[in-house]
Design a protein around this nucleic acid. Structure first.
Lengths: 209, 209
DNA sequence: TCCGTAATTGATCTAGCGATCAATAGGAAA
DNA sequence: TTTCCTATTGATCGCTAGATCAATTACGGA
């Protein structure tokens, strides 16, 4: 019989290997959702024995939380960049709605719907979910505050309105995911609703679709 | 040693036993979510051997879908009753928002967040989710159409606006669940957004909080 | 060139899942 | 009372999960 086909070992610096494992896990989560993150699936994707994944991660719960945080981090960064390129507050709010509802984010909608569901049984994930929600809220709140400063918007509670906008948009994306429909067709109407919430003149928040 | 403490058997009519099993499963789902629905957990709750649950259900996937449908069915019925007791369309829309955001529905928010997540791996559940979404949409659409008829509202796409309202409200409930905050504080603002969407006079949709 | 540290392997453990089925026994019909 | 149908039991199978750890071996430093 042939010799036992043991995997050829490649020894790497711990930091490098740890990064590879996180990267493999992140790729799986993006393609198949957080619930596809198993010790063995991550190991295979990283080209590594299952024990090594466990060696670099305190637990799978922690890995899931970490991957969730990384993915949302990246998304918030993307949106911050898009939105930051627009000067006018009303246009910026429109760009936010456009970007979050452009239909290119289904993968991430899967991640957060699963994340919210799994958070009930994974404390680390629950903390990550709450932390990332606050990042979103801060971003949206600052847009609203800018608008209030220029007079384009008018609300006494920008923070609360920010929470409301985020909740609305998330819900619409989740619904589109569940129904298998396109989320872009909600964008224009969502802009109208947003105007009412931030106290902007009707029609002043532009969306591309 | 004592005799093997075999469970005392109680023989019941199949329809009755099947109903008990569904009831046990529904109770678990309400208290702990859909993901707590395991063959053994349902059996224990129903006071029955695990094999009997399998005997009355084609598969656990089907049971989960059935329970989801039953729970949402009941909720839609409740809301229909509350909303049906109000004559004026604007007041009726306000009653809808009030009821769906009264903070008494956390259990059901858990069920549908989990449902949407699990639907990706359970076809029967995915069908149930879509079917129940359409029940909601029909209910909301009829309210909007009534308002258009009386002139209280004005929109050319009541069906689309209905989808949008449902998505918004679901998203806000889910967010409140994830953040551990109260959803009632969104009700008034949601009414303002709803007015913009259905084309009602600002302030014409009343909410109690 | 050799040695020793520690990165890496993969078998193995426990736990839980859905599903299956031969054996058992309750209770209505005769 | 006895009989027989079938509702019911619970052990069991096959599978997958996360976690653990003794054994192995790659590779930098001496």
């Amino acid at each position: 019989m042939s010799s036992t086909s043991s995997r050829p070992r490649t020894r790497k610096a711990p930091a490098e290997r740890a990064a590879e494992i996180i990267a493999a896990a992140t790729a799986i989560a993006r393609e198949q959702g957080l619930s596809a993150l198993t010790l063995r699936a991550v190991a295979e994707r990283a080209g590594v024995a299952s024990g090594l994944v466990a060696h670099y991660q305190p637990s799978m719960d922690d890995l899931v939380a970490r991957v969730y945080a990384d993915l949302v981090d990246e998304e918030v960064g993307d949106v911050e960049r898009v939105v930051g390129a627009v000067a006018d507050p009303a246009a910026r709010l429109g760009a936010l709605i456009d970007t979050l509802m452009d239909g290119e984010r289904e993968e991430l909608t899967v991640v957060w719907v699963e994340g919210w569901a799994m958070a009930r049984r994974n404390d680390a994930l629950a903390r990550a979910v709450r932390a990332q929600m606050e990042r979103w809220q801060t971003l949206v709140e600052s847009i609203i505050e800018d608008g209030c400063r220029t007079g384009a918007f008018s609300t006494s509670e920008p923070g609360e309105v920010a929470w409301e906008l985020i909740g609305m948009i998330d819900g619409l994306n989740a619904q589109s995911l569940a129904r298998g429909t396109d989320t872009t067709r909600f964008a224009a109407r969502t802009a109208r609703a947003a105007e009412a919430l931030v106290g902007a003149r009707p029609g002043s928040v532009p969306v591309s679709t």
